[in-house]
Design a protein around this nucleic acid. Structure first.
Lengths: 346, 346
DNA sequence: GTGAAAGCGCTAACAT
DNA sequence: ATGTTAGCGCTTTCAC
């Protein structure tokens, strides 16, 4: 059996001072005689003292924890929930989000609690979790446009920051990417390498990011005289990329350049093109979006629009931190600039 | 400004009963008059009461939270840490672990705290976190054989369960796979389809799982008269699979069947084979291991040894739960059986 | 600069 | 069956 963990009281006795003094030392508050501080330090060392967080949280009203919520729409069954979790974490995009968030949190010795919210029930769980004070705020990554969670969070006045602008306006801070600029980069690159019959595989069109990427691609081409740009809607998954590219190729067999709204779909597109006897990039050039792991796993390696996901995620965490500590009260947005990464596919 | 959250006291006043009674209702303890229970329920509803978890934890001495630790060896810099996090979450394997863990935890309204431990400092953080009672136990997934964390956890008598048997014996429970059986399945399948010049890309050989897979493959082939099996050591990454397969092909250009110790490396192997003019599976058959997302992303789709990672992860969580609640005191191990999934690559 | 003491909101033992 | 009460371990006035 593990014996009772040492408390402030124990350390105080050991050091021959009061609880209050030990507390001051532990929390690095000035007004403490350097000599006494040392004595206390040693006592802490000897006893192996670690402050009980529940007790501290009870008085400070702070958990020093944030929730990292991956949120969808709809009202999925439990089995669906597990599938959701698995699928989400299979997408290299989320790995980068986690990396960025952890990068910011760790130096502050905070750690994210992972939550999935795909049903009314699980959304309620997230709200309750925050209301119970188990986490001080939420970082939300939505996978669907009609995700109700952001609005719920805002209504409950719970601190939260979103990854990407929500489809419907909500008074919450968010970080985002200049998607139009990214799409423009892709278009210009394809034009510059001589492609003339361009097409695009878009993301789900109810998501603002997908709309922006599509609009940006079309606008740029329009400015170069391409009035009509064939496109097929995908769902940001490998399979949907395969389906969309097949469709596109059926309708426009002479396509010589493709812009896919993410790398996973670009990878799917490359597979279809090869199966249909096209060489990439010689016959058809392909540009992806994100610069995720898929861009490197793909053969040929993808030329893609890099989204600085880690930085964006870190910024999201920073904003939440400000909201939690009252350093920021108004909702704000931080928009990052994309960069074109040229590899072999275009 | 958000106003003070309602407390038990508030609900009690509202319902005209004592705090204790409200507490009983909230915690679903029997001895409560059904009538009163209803009154209290309504009061809870009206006030929007949510029990303060810090206060509860303080008295129950339980956080109802577990740490999900991804743990490596060595003593990496901060930058290295971030890269570590990103790489880990890019591996489809970990997505499945998270899915399985969350699947078990969620119905019990527990949520995992994500932690990375790749340096002495971060390992200490994990220990402190648990000692502070912020989490009741740890689920640890090691990426290296010489990971010191399991031993530290065991020494501190902190509840923990491992994914996979540790390289050096440690008195902690773990879940694992019958790796030898899996490798046997792969070998038999390759032999059955007529391959005669077999080779294998192993995982890092300091990891027990890699050793077992290699040994199982060799043993089975030996039993069929293949005294010598060329192999190259990989690191479970796509790149390492590419390097290993290139090496193998240089040394044994006539290879007609390959067993890779995970899907990512099998995917890399397929890429190399195609680039070197071999058709898969006609010229060279390839069998992977894991049945992760990579198996489906690969062209041709991989025939692979399925590891029931989600179930294993759920079992890991279940074991930890038992340890935490004292339902189990001795370390135990649960070993799962692999299954061959036949697709196009072999 | 240091200590005494009052809670933070909850559970659980005990009393009724 | 319900209420009273004593803490859980910590931070934080407020005296000294």
């Amino acid at each position: 059996m593990r014996r009772r963990a040492p408390t402030l009281e124990d350390v105080a006795r050991e050091a021959g001072v009061s609880r209050a003094t030990v507390s001051r030392v532990v929390n690095g508050i000035r007004n403490v005689d350097p000599e006494i501080r040392e004595v206390v330090r040693r006592a802490v060392e000897r006893t192996g003292y670690a402050p009980n967080r529940a007790a501290r949280s009870l008085v400070t009203r702070r958990a020093e924890t944030v929730a990292l919520v991956v949120s969808g729409a709809g009202d999925t069954s439990d089995a669906g929930q597990n599938a959701f979790a698995a699928r989400v974490f299979t997408d290299p995009f989320f790995g980068r989000v986690v990396g960025g968030v952890v990068g910011f949190l760790r130096p502050r010795s905070m750690h994210p609690v992972l939550m999935f919210a795909e049903s009314a029930e699980t959304r309620e769980e997230v709200l309750t979790y925050l209301r119970q004070g188990r986490a001080d705020g939420a970082l939300v990554v939505s996978t669907h446009a009609d995700d109700p969670l952001p609005a719920l969070l805002a209504d409950a006045r719970l601190p939260a920051v979103l990854f990407a602008r929500p489809a419907r306006p909500v008074p919450l801070s968010y970080v985002d990417l200049a998607h139009r600029d990214g799409a423009r980069l892709a278009a210009e690159h394809l034009l510059a390498r001589g492609c003339r019959r361009l097409a695009t595989v878009s993301g789900p069109l109810d998501v603002p990011a997908s709309q922006e990427r599509l609009a940006g691609f079309r606008d740029t081409l329009a400015r170069h005289g391409h009035a009509y740009v064939p496109f097929a809607e995908g769902g940001f998954t490998l399979d949907s990329g395969i389906a969309a590219m097949s469709d596109l190729l059926d309708r426009h067999p002479d396509t010589d350049g493709v812009f896919a709204a993410n790398d996973l779909m670009a990878q799917g597109a490359c597979q279809v093109l090869r199966e249909r006897g096209r060489r990439v990039p010689e016959d058809v050039a392909v540009v992806g979006f994100d610069d995720s792991g898929a861009a490197l796993a793909c053969r040929p390696r993808l030329t893609t629009v890099r989204q600085p996901v880690e930085e964006m995620a870190a910024e999201m965490a920073r904003l939440l931190d400000e909201h939690i500590h009252g350093a920021r009260t108004e909702a704000t947005s931080v928009v990052f600039e994309p960069v074109l990464v040229v590899r072999e596919s275009a």
